[in-house]
Amino acid sequence: MPKRTDISSILIIGSGPIVIGQASEFDYSGAQACKALRQEGYRVVLVNSNPATIMTDPEMADATYVEPLTVEVLEKIIARERPDALLPTVGGQTGLNLSVALAEAGVLARYGVELIGANLRAMQVAEDRELFKDAMTAAGLESPRSGVAAYAG
């Protein structure tokens, strides 16, 4: 299948500051994704708050935003740059969570941004233990026996 020509600019969300559990491996993955997409001729818009990354070098993307990673700030960037698509899978859990939040808050729909590389439903199923367990059971796979307790008081 040839590459898509109906999209021309793609937003990538990085993983932010290095914390325990989310280190520079996402600089590696984000930088690779930026390079690959630009080689294919796409305009890449990158957001990451971490200045110590290779991916935020100004030559890695067409527009590089070293800005806080919050839904509000990302909405401002989307409003300015109007990307056609969002690649949510190369910025660690932070990038994925923000992508889900942007979709759930209606921001992606409002600006016509398509999720590519992973769909919203798959991200939700993978994140939600109950949905995940149901999906596994339906596929005939076993997952750890479990239940969710909620705070009543």
Partner: peptide, 11 residues
């Protein structure tokens, strides 16, 4: 990561 980006755009 590179391949994930490429298959995301249709390859």
């Amino acid at each position: 990561a590179k391949l994930a980006a490429k298959i995301a755009v249709g390859y």
